[in-house]
Amino acid sequence: MGEVIVITSGKGGVGKTTTTANLGTGLASLGKKVVLVDTDIGLRNLDVVMGLENRIVYDLIDVVEGRCRLKQALIKDKRLENLYLLPANQTRDKTAVSRQQMIDLTSQLREEFEFVLIDCPAGIEMGFKNAIAGAEKALVVTTPEVAAVRDADRIIGLLEAAEMEPPRLIINRLRPEMVRKGDMMDIEDMLEILAIDLIGVVPEDQYIVISTNRGEPAILDKHSRAGQAYRNISRRLLGEEIPFINWEAGSFMSRIKKLMGLG
């Protein structure tokens, strides 16, 4: 039985879809059988970020409404053998699927896959409720901005009220040089405000824009800083103890640490 993990944030644009694509790719490249589920019905993106948009024939709604079998709707990744995508429908909206349908769907998927990663839409409405319905774990993505952290707090409250496992935090788009100058919230500030465990910090990386446009997750690029962070998070998801890269300590230190194999 696989794990069902929802990737959520509350606020839009903080990197849920990018995180889902990268962690899914990361787990798959570590040999796990993974499926990514895009629950952002009507505003699907995950297929684009994965570079699979031209392969969609059936989608999540077709599955829950019985127009196709689950297997028919799963799109195989073009790079990794054991990675699949269940795309969202683009013509309907969030009300097209119910919580019970999501629970049924995820329980079907977890029999087949070791990891079911659910890309949650922004907001706290029906789309969010559907996305978390079948999940037992959650990763909350935030950026070092007051508004994003505030929304993350709201989301964590809702996840706790739904009696899920304590969610873990991904801090995305951290800019170490701004933190050092005191112009950006640091990791400690965010952890103090949100009071949950950290699973990873992803630094700002221009390569993400390039990789997203190309439909190639950054995690596949050895030189991408964000890709490195995502690789570490993937391994932490498998229960490995990977030391945190100290992005805030300065590039020199982080390079030394990398040389020492701590990065």
Binding site: R150, D151, D153, R154, I156, G157, E160, A161, A195
Partner: peptide, 8 residues
């Protein structure tokens, strides 16, 4: 007890 979060 607990953390009373944003919106609660």
């Amino acid at each position: 007890e607990g953390n009373l979060r944003n919106g609660q």
